[in-house]
Simulated assay, not measured.
Amino acid sequence: MDLNTISAVARPQSRAQMPVWAAGDAWLAGGTWLFSEPQVHLTRLIDLADLKWPALTIEDSGLTIAATCTVAQLDALACPPDWPAAPLINQCCRAFLASFKIWKTATVGGNLCMSLPAGPMISLTSALDGVCTIWKADGGEQRVSVADFVTGNQRNLLAAGDLLRQIDIPLAALKRRTAFRQISLTPVGRSAALLIGSVSSEGALALTVTASTVRPVKLAFPSVPGAGELRDAILHHIPDQVYHDDVHGKPAWRKHMTLRLAEEIRSELQGQARP
């Protein structure tokens, strides 16, 4: 869609060249949502392409994902063989149910910043203990976990002029064994519940609930719990008002599927925990 109210496009090549944020500004990365509907309140785009951030960086400490990394780039990542969690990357990329054109354009950072409950990059990075680096509008920097970054349906911690720079995934999270479950109300619909479980080498279980809830919910157990303990923890930590309500699924159904998928994950991972 043409954005016919735009009168200027800034193309900074470094943080020092970033223009002073003003009303009517918008960051431009992939633009798959930005150009999908009228944006009559916008007058200037700040294009991030010339910053040329490396899409993906593998280091001894883990994986760094630039906010401008596309879904296609992430899906094509050749992960080290000692990352048991690597299959999650492909599983979450495919939860987009998007065309190849979207895959080649949509960005990981854009998915986080849209903060839709069904955002699969939110599911992936929150389950892997991702930490966001935010460039603050005042020139400072903030680091916050992905689980805390997203605060609700299309709500997050970004203030006007703040920019998501990258997401860091620690090596320890990539070394965990994982289980993935996702369901939609229709065969090719938006995720109505997307749960990811993981077990550490010490046998601790982490469960991340997304899509069925308006924000990521993380539960941690020192070992794989029994079915009743897991169910009680979900009922305690996820009140009914946290379940999302839209055309892709009613809260009661999302809650039911969350409990069902969580038990499937628990059963699958129980055999992977250390005796």
Score class of each variant (00 low, 15 high):
residue 178 T to R: 03
residue 118 A to V: 14
residue 134 I to M: 00
residue 160 A to M: 13
residue 214 V to E: 07
residue 192 A to Y: 07
residue 199 V to L: 13
residue 214 V to N: 07
residue 111 N to V: 15
residue 230 L to H: 08
residue 187 P to N: 00
residue 128 L to V: 13
residue 106 A to Y: 02
residue 116 L to K: 13
residue 139 G to C: 14
residue 229 E to M: 11
residue 216 P to V: 01
residue 150 V to G: 00
residue 219 L to M: 03
residue 107 T to I: 08
residue 207 L to Q: 05
residue 219 L to E: 00
residue 168 D to G: 00
residue 199 V to D: 09
residue 207 L to M: 04
residue 111 N to M: 12
residue 125 T to H: 10
residue 165 R to I: 01
residue 180 F to A: 03
residue 112 L to M: 10
residue 149 F to Y: 12
residue 130 G to Y: 05
residue 197 G to W: 01
residue 137 A to M: 01
residue 213 T to Q: 00
residue 201 S to K: 09
residue 166 Q to H: 10
residue 123 S to M: 08
residue 152 G to L: 10
residue 137 A to I: 04
residue 190 R to I: 14
residue 173 A to T: 11
residue 206 A to D: 13
residue 150 V to Y: 02
residue 128 L to W: 09
residue 118 A to W: 09
residue 123 S to Y: 02
residue 178 T to Y: 07
residue 117 P to F: 02
residue 201 S to H: 13
residue 198 S to N: 09
residue 198 S to H: 05
residue 226 G to S: 12
residue 121 M to W: 03
residue 175 K to T: 14
residue 200 S to D: 15
residue 208 T to H: 10
residue 188 V to R: 04
residue 227 A to Q: 13
residue 134 I to T: 08
residue 189 G to K: 03
residue 128 L to H: 11
residue 100 F to C: 06
residue 225 P to H: 00
residue 225 P to V: 04
residue 134 I to S: 03
residue 165 R to E: 03
residue 109 G to A: 12
residue 111 N to I: 15
residue 132 C to P: 06
residue 151 T to I: 12
residue 172 A to D: 15
residue 126 S to I: 14
residue 103 W to N: 02
residue 228 G to I: 06
residue 201 S to W: 11
residue 156 N to H: 11
residue 117 P to Y: 01
residue 139 G to F: 14
residue 190 R to L: 15
residue 129 D to I: 07
residue 105 T to N: 02
residue 127 A to L: 12
residue 146 V to L: 12
residue 228 G to L: 01
residue 138 D to E: 10
residue 216 P to S: 00
residue 137 A to Q: 12
residue 220 A to G: 02
residue 205 L to A: 03
residue 224 V to L: 05
residue 205 L to D: 06
residue 142 Q to P: 06
residue 111 N to H: 09
residue 204 A to I: 01
residue 117 P to G: 03
residue 165 R to S: 04
residue 179 A to T: 04
residue 111 N to C: 12
residue 170 P to M: 11
residue 131 V to F: 08
residue 190 R to F: 15
residue 205 L to V: 02
residue 186 T to I: 15
residue 227 A to W: 05
residue 184 S to P: 10
residue 125 T to L: 14
residue 226 G to C: 08
residue 209 V to L: 13
residue 101 K to Y: 15
residue 212 S to I: 02
residue 124 L to T: 04
residue 185 L to F: 15
residue 104 K to R: 13
residue 139 G to E: 12
residue 154 Q to S: 13
residue 196 I to L: 03
residue 226 G to L: 09
residue 119 G to E: 06
residue 158 L to S: 07
residue 121 M to K: 05
residue 189 G to N: 08
residue 162 D to V: 03
residue 192 A to V: 11
residue 194 L to E: 07
residue 124 L to M: 04
residue 202 E to M: 05
residue 152 G to D: 13
residue 185 L to C: 12
residue 138 D to F: 01
residue 203 G to P: 06
residue 125 T to F: 07
residue 223 S to W: 09
residue 221 F to S: 03
residue 159 A to N: 14
residue 112 L to N: 04
residue 163 L to V: 01
residue 225 P to N: 06
